[in-house]
Write a protein that binds this DNA or RNA. Structure first.
Lengths: 273, 273
DNA sequence: AGGGCAATGTCCGCCATCGAACGCAGGTCC
DNA sequence: GGACCTGCGTTCGATGGCGGACATTGCCCT
């Protein structure tokens, strides 16, 4: 099932049809070609080089559980593609997404924040590829990476902001608004307009019932904003979706891009100037 | 209106009747007597001493705005008594609390996290006293305080957990449950069973309407769990309240106490071993 | 081609909460 | 003592979303 040859992604549970997504990218791990993950991209060259040998590229498959609530976190993930979710579980069967992680961020903040676990579950939402480091190695390496340390601080704040906004949003906004917001956030983290997503899953993400999401999604579709069939969804009118979504989308996005500009270079320049 | 003599708290808007709360405490800023704030308490002596000269004690008055959304944060606050709230503001008039801060924590995490602002508002909820440092000084001092740095990392995680839990809680639990939870969280941060609190304010905190809170509060009172009149509330049956509250209370509390034990000593022991 | 499952559409009754208003009472100030 | 404000209780209709169930429709598998 896996393909244990040299540079290939480690993969426990891959489906064959996920493979083509990543065909172009992986053997060039630690050189200066474009790094898809925003955080790694913002690491200065020296610190990136230090990290690189310990980064392994793995494939993330749909619904894969990366860690459970209050379980020790064994790896820290830097997604290149795909989308992950941090999910809070309440008393049996109720579960709500509290945070979304894609190539703008990392999964495993608790490791950075001096703990080895958190009461959240991490699940793969949209399949993709990530680089990962073992938690222990990561902890050690951080000592010598002051610049990257700061990058992670900023990301921590951005993530905190996202979660905080969700707390308010979950209280105030309608299913349709939240649905639109969620789709936009996911779209931001994707390279294509089409991605796999069932309404079942979406319902959990939004902390709503599936029929409710069904209606909301049908509404958005009838407005021509999205289009979906059996677990595949396509964003067909982004502007329109932004209108349909609540303000929360813009607030979180702007804050993220302010503290971690998507096109910024590392503060200690690679070689020039 | 203020009292600019030597060690006295700076105070822009104090009401006279808040004064007795703090009569015993303030002139002994930087010595090793018991520090009321859990984070400062966990700082090793050397680092605490470095911080101490820059800490000024201020009085926090009810409804005082400590900073507004997206405003530069000028001070970092370590409450000794009283309770603060981080509030998310949505499109005009809707506002929801996303985090609570008392003597277990600090206000101004964005400063620690390499930013100078966040889209949250910070308001005093229950009057009290806090130590504060200017944001700039705090940033500088942090470089030399690696142990305290770690403490703050842990607190960041605890706060993140609290906010994440609120996101889920806000989506799922009833007003009564959230009301009970909120009272418990506040009670944890208080030294007494009675404190000022209007249902108006409580409604904002819970992101609900005032009449809704009125009913929930009346319910809790009729069960003998609390008691209130005109802006003063008393916790009369803590155990009972814990039963009435949702699981979120316990989850957040346990997580906090695990990453930052309330009675722990600084990791670099004062003199022994 | 047909069985079966996964994903979606839809219907019902119901309840918590909303939105907006009005009435009352305790405390404060003149 | 009276005016006033703030905090609390309560009412009414409206409604979004819940809980649970059932009917469809693609897609996959054999």
């Amino acid at each position: 099932m896996t393909h244990p040859s040299s540079g290939r992604p480690v993969d426990d549970t891959a489906h064959a049809h996920d493979a083509e997504i990543l065909s172009a990218r992986w053997p060039t791990l630690h050189s200066q070609d474009y790094e898809a993950n925003r955080l790694l991209r913002l690491a200065p060259a020296a610190e990136y080089e230090r990290l690189a040998p310990h980064l392994e590229t793995v494939r993330l498959t749909r619904r894969q559980l990366l860690y459970g609530p209050n379980e020790p976190i064994r790896y820290v993930y830097f997604p290149q593609t795909g989308v992950l979710s941090a999910i809070s579980h309440l008393h049996e069967n109720r579960a709500v997404e509290v945070g979304t992680i894609g190539n703008e961020g990392m999964l495993g903040l608790p490791v950075f924040l001096m703990s080895d676990r958190a009461p959240l579950e991490a699940v793969v939402h949209v399949p993709g590829v990530a680089k990962r480091v073992s938690a222990d190695t990561f902890r050690e390496l951080l000592h010598d990476c002051s610049e990257f340390h700061m990058v992670l601080h900023r990301y921590t704040l951005a993530f905190l902001t996202q979660v905080a906004q969700s707390a308010a949003c979950n209280r105030v906004h309608s299913i349709t608004e939240r649905c639109a917001r969620w789709l936009l956030m996911t779209h931001d983290r994707m390279q294509t307009d089409r991605f796999p997503l069932t309404q079942d899953l979406l319902a959990i993400m939004l902390g709503a019932r599936r029929p409710g999401v069904s209606i909301a999604a049908a509404g958005l579709q009838s407005l021509g904003l999205i289009q979906y069939t059996r677990g595949r969804i396509a964003i067909t009118d982004r502007k329109g979706l932004e209108n349909a979504a609540c303000e929360c989308y813009g607030i979180v996005r702007q804050h993220l891009d302010r503290v971690l500009p998507p096109d910024a270079q590392p503060a200690t320049p690679p070689a020039s100037s």
